[in-house]
């Protein structure tokens, strides 16, 4: 629904498209995150690493923890179906979904800017998506 005062629309079509996608994505993220965490905590699926082991080492830095054990990082939870079917991977995947949310919304904004023939902002939104996708590819984080 558009906020109006005597027929005036205060948000343009791009914003309304972005808002609609954002609403759907953010609600989905909340549901996926809650379900994933329940699977993890209640151990409804087998765990890659016991919760007690993670909890016993959460005072270690991320680098030290990775030297000690195989905790999920980047897209590792999707490396194989058997990995993804672990409770901790499901919960981690929900966090990955949260990190992807903005990229999905911006992708719809690119389309909306193009259809409005606003090529300047379409290019800027595309550039922004490229930055986020590069970050999501792990290219900036290599060399650990």
């Amino acid at each position: 629904m558009t906020e109006k005062k005597k027929g005036v629309i205060y948000a343009d079509r791009v914003q309304l498209t972005y808002a609609k996608t954002l609403e759907f994505v953010s609600h989905s993220v909340i549901v996926v995150m809650a379900v994933g965490y329940l699977f993890y905590l209640l151990q409804l699926l087998p765990l890659g690493l016991p919760i007690e082991t993670i909890a016993g080492n959460w005072h270690l830095s991320s680098a030290e923890l990775h030297d000690t054990m195989q905790v999920p990082c980047g897209w590792s939870c999707f490396s194989s179906l058997s990995t993804l079917l672990h409770g901790d991977s499901v919960s981690y995947a929900s966090v990955v979904f949260l990190a992807m949310a903005t990229t999905l919304c911006l992708a719809t904004a690119i389309w909306a800017f193009f259809s409005e023939k606003n090529y300047f902002y379409a290019a800027m939104a595309t550039l922004q998506v490229v930055v986020l996708l590069l970050a999501a590819s792990g290219i900036f984080s290599s060399g650990r």
């Binding site: 993890y40 991320s62 990082c73 919960s91 966090v95 990190a99 970050a135 900036f140």
Partner: peptide, 25 residues
């Protein structure tokens, strides 16, 4: 914030600095 946070979050994810056990609650 949602865009900047998303970009930086990937670095933390790839460096293994996100534990769902802590982040989700």
């Amino acid at each position: 914030l949602s865009i900047n946070g998303s970009a930086a979050a990937w670095v933390y994810l790839f460096k293994g600095a996100v534990l769902p056990l802590i982040a989700v609650p």
